[in-house]
Nucleic acid binder design. Structure first.
Length: 331
DNA sequence: AACTTTTACAACCGCATCATT
DNA sequence: AAATGATGCGGTTGTAAAAGT
């Protein structure tokens, strides 16, 4: 025989929201006797509740060390990072977030973080970009309208350009070359047999090993190999996929309106007018929930920003190609 | 003002594992 | 060792409040 049952079903025990009186009874009992032996808590505390419900009420709501209120920016970052490693192990995540319960984290994830990741084209399960969201056909059609890329696609094969690393490199090189000489670019690519072209075109997996970035303008290795510019290298952590950058007008890089998975270092960028410097550490998560303001040069007030404001962060990530960048060095 | 939709979060349910007999 | 219940955990639901129409 096993133990006596904790609480029988259909035994008339109360269900639904807890009243303040019930809470007080439970608090008083636990303060006196300590938490544990939940089977006997209802009886001893004079509660018409199942012991299981008493435990949940205590651990999720009544404990004095529970931190109430909105999640901070740092907490949100931690949740996202831990979730990318631990998955839906809410109790394990909660163990690393003092004052937060697994239930609270789970609810916050489902209500906020998960939805935002989905909106930004990130699969909340894999933390990788979603293929359906990326809409590669539109990406390709827009880029392939460019005659230069069209030439490349016909010569390298469209399939090759499905490789995000290659696409990003081509984009970068085309921008650097100001789209004037695709043939030269093609020759360069063929000559150097860039590594990106050899990466399997399955963008659902990230097989690249991305070292910490050093300098976004460091495009040329001492041996002459071109590095993917760090500006498009948003840190591939936990199989997160890098996304290609768009190139807007006036030689500006415009980041995809997407979630920025992780930045391994303090990559700093300057806004178009040079007035705003900010790092990806500051924008990788929802700024609204953060009590920490951006640095003083930022125009963004996190505490008052809206969802739209947050999503417009991506539009701020515009970067100018330095005037002094001598493109002839690369070709 | 009334109604509908969305959001936030507490609570419940069911399953897996652990503990006890 | 097996049986049984307790406990812990993750998924889901219910509901009140807020926002939108």
């Amino acid at each position: 025989m096993g133990r006596a049952p904790c609480c029988d079903k259909n035994n008339g025990l109360k269900k639904g929201p807890w009243t303040p009186e019930e809470d007080m009874k439970l608090i008083n009992y636990i303060q006196t006797h300590g938490a544990g032996d939940w089977r006997n808590v209802p009886k001893n505390a004079g509660l018409q509740r199942c012991g299981k419900r008493c435990r949940l009420r205590w651990t999720n709501y009544l404990r004095s060390d529970i931190k109430r209120g909105r999640f901070s920016f740092e907490e949100e970052e931690t949740i996202i990072q831990l979730h990318s490693v631990l998955g839906n192990k809410w109790s394990a995540i909660a163990a690393r977030l003092p004052g937060r319960t697994d239930n609270e984290i789970k609810n916050y994830w489902n209500a906020h973080i998960r939805k935002r990741l989905l909106r930004n084209g990130i699969d909340p399960v894999t933390h990788s970009p979603r293929l359906d969201f990326l809409d590669l056909s539109s990406i390709l059609s827009s880029t392939l309208c460019n005659q230069a890329l069209f030439s490349l696609s016909s010569l390298l094969g469209t399939q090759a350009l499905l490789n995000p690393n290659l696409l990003r490199l081509v984009n970068t090189l085309l921008a650097i070359n100001k789209l004037e000489n695709p043939e030269t670019l093609l020759q360069y690519l063929q000559k150097h047999q860039c590594q990106a072209a050899q990466t399997p075109p399955d963008i659902s997996t990230c097989t690249t090993s991305t070292p910490p970035s050093t300098n976004q303008t460091q495009l040329l290795q001492p041996n002459g190999e071109v590095l993917l510019p760090e500006i498009g290298n948003f840190g591939c952590q936990n199989s997160q996929q890098n996304l290609p950058l768009n190139f807007g007008d006036n030689n500006t890089f415009v980041s995809q309106p997407s979630y920025v998975p992780h930045v391994a270092d303090n990559s700093n960028f300057q806004s178009l007018d040079g007035s705003q410097n900010f790092s990806f550490d500051s924008v990788m998560s929802d700024p609204m929930s953060s009590p920490t303001p951006l640095n003083s040069s930022s125009l963004i007030n996190r505490s008052s920003s809206t969802e739209d404001d947050k999503e417009s962060y991506s539009s701020m990530l515009k970067f100018e190609i330095p005037e002094n960048l001598d493109i002839s060095d690369f070709m």
